[in-house]
Every structure is written in structure tokens, then in C-alpha cells.
């Protein structure tokens, strides 16, 4: 099985987002932080949807192989949309609605933590 190296993953580039929004001008918008960057998205979309509108739709690296993963089912079953929301890791992004100032993090660094093993506190 091919195992992606962390250095290689750092170079992942997505030219474009996978999805675009058909939001209406009158839709309420909220500001969320995706990996620390401010992004304006329509209110009431899921955290996973907010990420799918961004240029890099990699949500996480498989904790087993390090391969990039992204949502498959958007329905609570596949757990591929796990992201860190407001410092809580492994939240199902497809089941959580965005809120203003919500902090969403892709689980890329979390994978590096898994790889480097237990840390002394």
C-alpha cells in the first residue's frame, strides 16, 4: 500500500474548490475560521460544506496510512469528514452547522501528532 509522506502532503495543491455555492444575495452570511483564516460562508451550511467550498478539499489524513481523505457520504455514516471544531477533534463536519466565529481545522497536524507518538506533557 502506498503511504504518503508528510513532506509530500505539505506540497498538496488544489487548483480549485470542488463545490461552489448557489447562495442567494439575501442569504445571511457568517465568518468562520478555517485553519486560522477568516472565510465568509452562508449561514446554515454544514462545517463540511464550508470546507468543500475552499480551494483544498482535503479534510484529514488517514491516521493509518497518511493518505488524504475528504467526505464521502455527507450523511453521518462514513466519518471521512472528521475535523476539529472549536478545539474538539474528530467532529463530524457534515452534521454540524457553521456558526459565526466557528474555528474549523483540517486534521492534518493531528495526523502528524499521531505519527510522532505520545508526547510528554
Amino acid at each position: 500500500m502506498r503511504v504518503f509522506s508528510v513532506t509530500k502532503l505539505a506540497n498538496l495543491e488544489w487548483a480549485d474548490s470542488m463545490f461552489e455555492t448557489l447562495h442567494a444575495p439575501k442569504d445571511k452570511m457568517v465568518t468562520v475560521l478555517i485553519d486560522g483564516e477568516k472565510v465568509v460562508v452562508p449561514a446554515n451550511v454544514s462545517a463540511a460544506a464550508a470546507l468543500l467550498m475552499q480551494n483544498d478539499s482535503t479534510f484529514r489524513l488517514s491516521p493509518v496510512t497518511g493518505e488524504p481523505r475528504a467526505p464521502f457520504c455527507m450523511n453521518g455514516n462514513c466519518y471521512e469528514c472528521l475535523v476539529t471544531i472549536d478545539d474538539q477533534p474528530d467532529q463530524q463536519g457534515c452534521l454540524v452547522e457553521v456558526e459565526d466565529q466557528m474555528r474549523i481545522r483540517r486534521q492534518i497536524e493531528l495526523f502528524r501528532d499521531y505519527q510522532s507518538g505520545p508526547q510528554s506533557v
Partner: peptide, 21 residues
């Protein structure tokens, strides 16, 4: 990434008004 179920695409349309690019 980039592979999803058809149901996922429809869910994104219904719940978040998203369409694939």
C-alpha cells in the same frame, strides 16, 4: 478526495445549495 456518493452531492444541494465545479 473528490470521490463522493451521489446522495452526498444531493445532500449538499438540499442543505447547503452547493453544486460541483
Amino acid at each position: 478526495p473528490g470521490v463522493m456518493s451521489v446522495g452526498a452531492a444531493q445532500t449538499l444541494l438540499k442543505s447547503s445549495a452547493l453544486v460541483p465545479k
